[in-house]
Simulated scan of single mutants.
Amino acid sequence: MQELLHSLLVGLSLLLIAEGVLPFLKPNQWREMMVKAISSSDRSLRLLGAVSMFLGLTLLFLTRS
């Protein structure tokens, strides 16, 4: 159980680092992307979320094999 918690915290840490890179390096472009995301349809955002989850699961599967 402790190993699982450690892995989850490592994953969350890496996610936060990856999410923070663009706003840190290119804040204006990040802001423009957020404005576009807000004006996107629910369908487009769901599709993006589904593709992102699928790619994440695929990468996780490939790295665990």
Rank of each mutant, 00 (worst) to 15 (best):
I17W: 09
L15W: 11
L59R: 01
S7A: 15
E3A: 14
M53N: 00
D42P: 02
F54R: 02
T63H: 03
S13Q: 09
R46W: 08
L59C: 07
P27F: 10
G11W: 12
L4Y: 12
S39G: 05
Q2R: 15
L47S: 05
A37M: 07
L57D: 00
I17R: 03
S40W: 03
S13F: 15
L45P: 02
M34Q: 11
Q29N: 06
L16K: 05
L8I: 14
L47T: 06
K36Q: 11
A18L: 13
Q2L: 15
R64S: 06
W30Y: 10
A18E: 10
L22Q: 10
L60M: 08
G56Q: 01
L15Q: 12
F61H: 03
G11C: 10
N28Y: 08
W30H: 13
L47E: 04
G49V: 01
L8S: 05
T58E: 05
L5V: 12
H6T: 13
L5R: 12
L12E: 10
L16Y: 03
L45R: 07
L12A: 15
G11H: 06
R43Q: 07
M33L: 15
H6Q: 15
L62T: 05
L59N: 02
V10S: 08
A50Y: 02
L47C: 02
M34D: 03
S7M: 13
L25A: 15
S44R: 13
S65C: 03
A18R: 11
A50R: 00
S65L: 02
A37C: 09
L9M: 14
S13A: 15
Q29L: 11
D42C: 06
L5M: 15
F54M: 00
R31I: 10
L12H: 08
V10M: 14
F24K: 06
M34V: 11
E19Y: 13
S40A: 09
M53A: 09
R43N: 01
V35T: 06
